[in-house]
Amino acid sequence: MSPDINPFVLFFASIFTSNILLANFLGMCSFISISKDMKSSNGLGLAVTVVLVLTSMLNWVILKYVLIPLDLLYLRYIIFIIVIAATVQVLEMVIDRVSPALYMALGIFLPLITVNCAILGVALFMQIRSYSFIQTVFFSAGSGLGWWLAILALSAIQKKLLKAPVPAGLKGPGITLITIGFMAMAFIGFSGMLSVQ
């Protein structure tokens, strides 16, 4: 049933060649607005990775043992989004209780994550490509790390861009998008090594 791909191959492919952001355009909204500041991009990257792994594991279990046996596959959008929202909420409360310092660092990013397309996107990809549980874990971890890498790299580039003479019309989102385009090209350069569809 599940495709025969080594989980490690999947892991590296989802970081580099099919980066969730640069190849699949997922998680752009918060990406562009947050990426101006390196510290917050770091926090957001960590939060996205953690939530991604947690929710895709939960969603896989629900998909396999509830939705498919009961033939309720058409409800998956609602179920997935509820699982994501609930996980984010619980995680927020737990972090607040356990580690106030971490909460200070991550707290403001958690609500943003619910509407991050990358999280729902990974859940839908794993359903459509019918990954096994292990594959799902590696795929989601890789996607999260890939997103984190992309946002960190972009925020570092943007710091340099502040000093560059950019035409007035291109300032702001325009130049950011073109920068992302170049990054995407660089990442596609890895695709000779491994590729996963």
Binding site: G169, P173, L177, I178
Partner: peptide, 25 residues
Amino acid sequence: TIMVMAPSAFFLLGTFIWISKTIML
């Protein structure tokens, strides 16, 4: 081939924003 792949969408959207913003300015 680049137009079929992801980077071109970023370039085109970036250029589009550039043009529209210049007209607005």
